[in-house]
Design a protein around this nucleic acid. Sequence first.
DNA 1: GAATTGCATGGAT
DNA 2: CATCCATGCAATT
Length: 887
Amino acid sequence: MASTPAAASSSKICFNSDCKDLKSEIPRKGWRLRTGEFAELCDRCASAFEEGRFCDTFHLNASGWRSCVSCGKQVHCGCIVSVHAFTLLDAGGIECIACARKNVVSGSSSSWSQSMLFHSSVPEKYKEYSAKGWTQLAGSGPVPWRQAPSLFNSSVSQTELHSRVPYEVDLTSGIDRLNVCDRSSTPSLEKKKVDDFSERLMNANLKPGTRDIQDKGNAGINFEDQHNSCLTKFQQSSLKEESSNPSFGLAVPYTSQDETGQIGISGTHLRPNPQPSPAKQFHIALQNALDTSSETQIRNGRPRPDGRGKNNLFPRYWPRFTDQDLQQITGDSNSIITPLFEKMLSASDAGRIGRLVLPKKCAEAHFPPISQPEGLPLKVQDSKGKEWIFQFRFWPNNNSRMYVLEGVTPCIQNMQVQAGDVVTFSRLEPGGKLVMGFRKTSTASVSDQDNEAKNSNGVSMHGDAETADPTSWSKVDKSGYIAKEALGAKVAVSRKRKNSMLGSKSKRLRIDNEDLVELKLTWEEAQGLLRPPPNQVATVVVIEGFEFEEYEDAPILGKPTIFATDNLGEKIQWVQCEDCFKWRRLPSNVLLPSKWTCPSNSWDPERSSCSATQELTAEQLENLLPQCNPAASKKLKTAKQEPENVDALEGLDTLANLAILEEGESLPASSQATTKHPRHRPGCTCIVCIQPPSGKGPKHKQTCTCNVCETVKRRFRTLMLRREKKQSQKEAETTAKKQQTSLPDKVVDGDPPPCTNAENSCPNPKKVATEGSEDHPNIVKSSTSPFKGQIDLNIQPEREEELSPGSDSGSMMKLLQDATDIYLRQQSMLTSGGNSNPEVTQIQPGGGPGEEKISSSLNLGVSHRDVDREPSAAFSIKTSAPTSATG
DNA sequence: GAATTGCATGGAT
DNA sequence: CATCCATGCAATT
């Protein structure tokens, strides 16, 4: 129809060639042009367009009118303006959008899915357009937003908003991923082989998927459903993506120039040349995308305009929104949300630098194209509805670019997210508003990822049927809905992806998971090794519904055993001989050394030799083993609580205990964020390290103020206070002495006893309070002390912030440190009559930084990976905080 | 001296 | 082996 795109904005005349009116002062946008721009219309035409009367008004005499097979309504199918107003049916013919929706809802129409799907791959070259249509979110002018190349966009032309079909989202999303979006240069939508497409799709295993989509996605019956389905699809699709599988040929091409996003419709315009088979097509498309992108990726020059297809996005960035996420974003509105991508915040991202590195492909695919490093301001709304303006820019990097979002600190802080948490980017329709949501990583997400990874790996290429395991999803989302959906949809699309890509994609995640597992095992192990001191009766403390067994003395390490109750109801424990591996029955109150063998079995002479037979049958043992960990490790009983919390609490609790015992050696994976970078090395002044704890733990929730964390903190506080109180009462004098002595030593002595921890152990509130200045003394001391190496590194004025009690870092570190501190102090007091410290708290310089541990009996045999030395270092440094309590 | 900014580096994919 | 991208870090402000 009308003129060139340029004309759209440059001309003062209404874009409608049949209208010669001047555009209004503020030109109203009409349909999306092939260039990505929007036709600017005069009020009258704009109104006609928005009301769906444009073609009726101006194209009555034009060709291309068809009747809706359902209602008979005439639809101008040969026009870009109405592209979104109808859908092509598999059997031929068209259906107006209204009927299509109805049918979809009723499940009677398969046309939708097909038509939608068929947008399969579009040559990458076409994609270019996609970027163009960007909405500017912020700075630059507002562009209504582009439909995403991604099919996702359900964006409907503004005018068409109403007609938007909810499930479009689903499709889009699904498609999006694969997608190769683009807008064909040839607008000729016209009917070009819709049928072909559908066919192809069907052939390509897509059927199931499609069907699902339809079924599930039923038009908007309920948003959640949509979302869910969305998820499902994502996943599925994601599976394939990287694998380059032909899989679905869903890629939707850009939906035509018009933003109307009708995915289904867009098919119409699509691809100039049909391809042999969907699969192939898709494949090719991807290939093209890849090729082009690489080709085009010229030095810092702008990447392809369209930003290479999203197809190439790494799975790790695929949006895995949970319906909660979506719900959070969309709220109660009827907005349609199009997940774009997500990213786990790295320490850098969450750090105070305020720069969030954006995955290149994601940035290029979903954000407005930028040619200058300065980029442009991007307005983003957070899930709370608050708007933020970030600078979307890039840095030249190795002949490529590194995209970053600057100025995110306030937002991140506001949302209380930290490294390890996930930021999600999505587009909200209508409006094309960019929305960012956050998801705390913690347990759920981790598992999700894990699941996903697994799924992906295991899935077969063609599997329509395969589909990812619904369960996993359900787990992920936790919203029952998904589970439901997953089951139903099961597979909507083939999830094939299991491919390597996915595998690779989640590699990092996987690593995290592995760490998590390890950590967990470690905790359990540790718990299993802990025993209450002999003859000690636990004091049960109930904190917020949790019962904690508190012992006067520190736990003791012993050989892991399995506690059980025999037939007579007598409590016993089973222990395995180190030499013969046979299990021996012993009284439950026996505390065994870490190394125990049959000859030591004084309780059962008959079985005090490895030659003696094992009392337990394999079966019995098997029954026992399962409970082993739980039983042994559970020092913490939960009266009632949500599973999630329980786990977390338990984990934290254990962690804390471990930390106490090992002086922080354990903080492990939990504090890992994204990759493995050196995080917060005490001493280190790098960007990351100088950041507040917030940047610290990823999964961590260390700085988290959630109930769990708060509970743990409280627990510590309570326990510590109680202990201290008791202690002080018992050995007030001793304590006092120690404090006095230790204090002087330290301060005065440049070379105090080896233990910097001594500081910790030394209750010296004042000292603690002193702050930075104090640090220096420490440093001095440390230099002479055995651990000096570590200490030196760790001690830095800068770190104070992190360490200081007051710092925002309500991090776990701090918590643990505090607890440790107190604990150690007590220890020293208890054990020593006065010289305790060195022994108990001594830190061994050992191998390297972070190796410190308590040399005393507390030293656990548990292996900890030096995952994080930092923590340990931190501990040593910290020392003080809690001290004040002492005072 | 601290905070920013922009680019370089190098491990991970 | 080419990229990506998380960080490091020096130059600026």
